[in-house]
Design a binder for these strands. Structure first.
Length: 570
RNA sequence: CGGGAUGUGGCGCAGUUUGGUUAGCGCGCAGCGUUCGGGACGCUGAGGCCCCGGGUUCAAAUCCCGGCAUCCCGACCA
């Protein structure tokens, strides 16, 4: 493609309505233009990236055995009434009316249509499994569209739906999609982790979200850079410290700490630090008082405590609870408080030192309270809220807490839609059952935001080669001398030869100053920049710059085509 | 839906407080000339329903009322 005829106008200034880098750059580089809130036109460069990402998704879906279809965007609202999701989606759904006053939903997703489709075609166990997917525009009237195409009201989504005879089959379909997603996001150049989103009823992991690590992400999560561990902040745990023998420690002693229910005040008063204190947090577990023991500098993860006593009903003690139990010395509870039915201790309490704890009476703390000698918890678990730097439960390396962009979601649906929409099959014994479904989404347009967030610098975009609009940005600087025509001709030849060799080239053949060409090339961010100027031409070399790394070298003009075609952005 | 902010040539902005000439600046665009390896320069020019509707006034981009749109924070959703 020639820059002289490419439909693009790069902007020097950041658009006024953009806050984050990806949005600013996608507008400045001429990939997208806003039409309405959360609704964008895709210009040639943006559309090429969109197509490239979609193609990666398509290849991996096909490879995983899914079959591509195209389902309607305008879907009869009656279908949504049948599944009960007309109400559930509410104002989130765009609705349109035809000339006969029939209402249609503009697809926010396609479970209804695809389930009805399969129900009409398949009815035997011999037909299953089947997995259908499409890459199509979706519409959700978000309360707050954000950050360009990151959260749009119109967005390109890949949605896949698997139909199996039983849960074992579903698990296979789900695993295949999970594996395909990992390939997709890897190929797109994203740093990502899959996070368990929900576990439960059907058994095992029923839902996992793929999060691209990004500071502007809408959800915080804990992850490890050195292995594939990742978890919601509520579900995250850390590796317990190794057990060490308890040394001989001085005897427990009580100290007067009047009016000091707070950790920091006590620590200061006793000349120690919060991490050497122990907190005893009161919980109500099915009506019993249960103490959760954690170091003074850490927070209790209520979710983890609840999980440890599942299926009992677990809640933090409230002021009302304390009021109802005046015998409990709020703020001064110790790990051996007699009124506690059980105590659950965080594994970090095995540390080989005595603790400062509540003395089980108001205005007093004890010091040199030693595990095994002065108190013995009934239960052990990882119950502190994980903080950055805590050891990874898998590999022990320091954990990070970052924000993520949800770029994909895999979900085991079960029979919710097959039941309500009649997707049944007959087994080999003649009995009828609902098909067991899974659904799997990838935010294709959102991936572009995620890629740009990860791959850009001060100068502009730095596309991974796998999704770049063009592989090579060819710049010609003919210079002012007599030889300009020859340089231009050589660049034309280079352009023709590269294309002949199958390389996607953007050729800046415009008659503008070198500064503009270089600045635009950096902004547009093709992986490889080739510059042919008068000086280089005289030496029969062409300059190469790898956009992402900034590494430059010179290639022999005669060999350049082969080298570039062979090496790409390596 | 609550809070905050903003709407002025294609883009970024000034002007609005204190109403008053032909509404200005930078970028971009067109023409001519000089430039030509990191967003060159000079001259000339085109391009405006100052978001929309109503009101006040001799006079409104500017003041008042009512809308609409866009962005940010929150809530909501997942």
């Amino acid at each position: 493609m020639r820059m002289s005829s490419l439909f693009v106008r790069t902007l020097r200034d950041d658009p006024a309505d953009a806050e984050v880098a990806s949005h600013k750059l996608m507008v400045r580089a001429g990939l997208i233009r806003r039409v309405a809130s959360g609704i964008y036109s895709w210009l040639p460069l943006g559309n090429r990236v969109l197509r490239n990402v979609a193609q990666i998704v398509r290849e991996e879906m096909d490879e995983a055995g899914a079959q591509e279809v195209s389902l309607p965007i305008a879907q009869p609202l009656d279908l949504w009434k049948r599944s009960g999701r007309d109400e559930a989606y509410g104002d989130m759904m765009f609705r349109v009316k035809d000339r006969k006053d029939n209402w249609y939903a503009m697809a926010p997703t396609a479970e209804e249509v695809v389930t009805t489709l399969v129900a009409g075609e398949y009815s035997s166990y011999r037909d299953l499994p089947v997995n259908l997917y499409q890459i199509n525009w979706k519409y959700r009237d978000e309360l707050r569209p954000r950050f360009g195409v990151l959260r749009g009201r119109e967005f390109l989504m890949k949605d896949a739906y698997s139909f199996d005879a039983d849960l074992a089959g579903l698990q296979q379909s789900y695993d295949a999609m999970y594996a395909a997603y990992t390939k997709v996001f890897t190929r797109c150049g994203l740093t990502f982790r899959s996070v368990k989103a929900q576990s439960g009823e059907i058994g095992g992991d029923t839902s996992q979200e793929f999060m691209a690590v990004a500071a502007i992400g809408e959800d915080a999560f804990v992850w490890c850079e050195h292995c594939d561990y990742a978890a919601n902040t509520e579900a995250a745990t850390r590796r317990p410290a190794p057990e060490v023998a308890m040394p001989d420690l001085p005897a427990r002693e009580s100290v007067h700490t009047p009016d000091m229910p707070g950790i920091d005040v006590v620590a200061e008063h006793l000349g120690t630090t919060a991490d050497l204190l122990m907190k005893s947090i009161a919980f109500d577990v099915d009506g019993d008082l249960v103490l959760a023991l954690v170091p003074g500098d850490r927070e209790v993860n209520e979710y983890a405590v609840a999980a440890a006593f599942s299926p009992a009903s677990v809640r933090l003690y409230t002021d009302a609870d304390f009021a109802a139990h005046p015998d409990i010395p709020k703020g001064y509870i110790g790990p051996d408080f007699a009124g506690a039915a059980r105590t659950i201790a965080d594994d970090s309490l095995r540390a080989p030192h005595g603790w400062v704890t509540g003395a089980n009476r108001v205005d007093h703390h004890d010091r040199n309270v030693v595990l095994g000698r002065d108190f013995t918890p009934s239960d052990w678990a990882e119950i502190v809220v994980v903080e950055p730097g805590d050891p990874c439960p898998n590999c022990g390396e320091p954990l990070r807490i970052d924000r993520g962009i949800e770029v994909g979601h895999v979900f085991q649906l079960g029979d919710k839609y097959s039941k309500s929409l009649g997707a049944m099959y007959t087994d080999d014994g003649g009995a009828e059952h609902p098909m067991v479904m899974g659904c799997y989404g990838i935010g294709v347009s959102r991936i572009l935001s995620a890629i740009v967030e990860e791959h850009h610098d001060e100068q502009g975009l730095c596309w991974p080669a796998s999704v770049a609009p063009y592989q090579v940005h060819l710049i010609v600087i003919p210079g002012r001398g007599e030889g300009g025509a020859a340089v231009l001709a050589a660049a034309e030849q280079l352009y023709a030869d590269l294309r002949e060799r199958g390389v996607d080239v953007l050729f800046d053949d415009r008659d503008v100053s070198p500064g503009i060409k270089f600045a635009d090339a950096d902004l547009l961010g093709m992986p490889v920049h080739l510059t042919l100027g008068a000086k280089g031409f005289a030496k029969a070399i062409v300059e190469r710059k790898i956009r992402a790394t900034g590494v430059r070298d010179e290639l022999d003009l005669a060999a350049a085509v082969e080298i570039v075609a062979h090496e790409g952005a390596r």
